[in-house]
Amino acid sequence: MILPLDLILLLFVVITGIAALQIKDLLGATIILGSFSFFMCLIYTEMGAVDVAFTEACVGAGVGTVLFIAAVHKTKRRSKD
């Protein structure tokens, strides 16, 4: 537990979360969601949950991003909101 590092990481998480919801390009939103997952992984490591952190890094950020990109590739990339 290092308080300044924790606060900086939580700030990054909030910023990437807002950006993932607001970007109109769905591919960009997906990539930003992947970076959101990686920042969450850093927070888990920092809180002492190493097993959760590497599960999140390979399953949440890796496989999740791949699934999202495959779905966006099969459908439309533009979004109106």
Binding site: M40, F68, K80
Partner: peptide, 20 residues
């Protein structure tokens, strides 16, 4: 949000909040 993929991204963020 109106877009279905955006709804799914929102669901992911919700889930991550519970895990946190």
């Amino acid at each position: 949000k109106k877009n279905l993929v955006k709804k799914l991204i929102g669901m992911n963020i919700f889930q991550v909040a519970i895990i946190l």
